[in-house]
């Protein structure tokens, strides 16, 4: 089974590819990109919840750090959810400039967020939670999105 770090890093890449597919569709027609947008948003939301409800929670319980890095990552999740919501509104309004302006902003935020997680938080989580790694990955895999 993958480690926590491998599992979540691969999931970042999967979401990146969904993002790229959405942009490609949107380049042709915003209306035709709705399905790809929904898939990207759902899968990204799933990723955030895997972190917030499973991995972050386990990390916080183990280390006692609730106001540390996980709090900052949660805050960035909020920022990105906000951008994704605005992208949906731009999609509905058929406003291509707005949509691509938001998607570019989201992409930058997403990537620096991912870098910080992969560089620091996942490495740290793997160190603290290595004994429970398999259990945590299994929990993330079987989690149902709320």
């Amino acid at each position: 089974m993958s480690t926590i770090k491998e599992y979540l890093t691969e999931d970042h890449q999967r979401c990146d590819h969904l993002f790229a597919a959405m942009e490609e569709k949107a380049g042709t027609s915003l209306q035709g990109a709705k399905e790809a947008y929904t898939e990207f948003v759902n899968e990204t939301e799933r990723h955030y919840q895997m972190e917030e409800r499973v991995m972050f929670a386990e990390f916080e319980a183990k280390t006692g750090m609730t106001q540390g890095p996980t709090a900052m990552m949660r805050h960035e999740h909020v920022q990105m959810r906000q951008l994704m919501k605005q992208m949906g509104e731009a999609l509905e309004a058929n406003n291509k400039d707005k949509f691509f302006g938001l998607s570019e902003t989201l992409m930058m935020l997403l990537q620096q967020h991912n870098m910080k997680e992969e560089q620091m938080l996942y490495t740290m989580a793997q160190q603290h939670l290595s004994a429970e790694s398999d259990r945590i990955v299994a929990m993330m895999e079987s989690m149902i999105v709320e």
Binding site: Q82, D97, G101, E104, T105, M108, L109
Partner: peptide, 24 residues
């Protein structure tokens, strides 16, 4: 790439929500 993002990131981090996107 970097400068518009920095401006957006710092403003958003301060709590400003309705700011121009990077492309604008």
């Amino acid at each position: 790439k970097v400068i518009p993002f920095l401006v957006w990131f710092h403003l958003n981090g301060m709590g400003y929500m309705n700011i121009p996107t990077i492309n604008e």
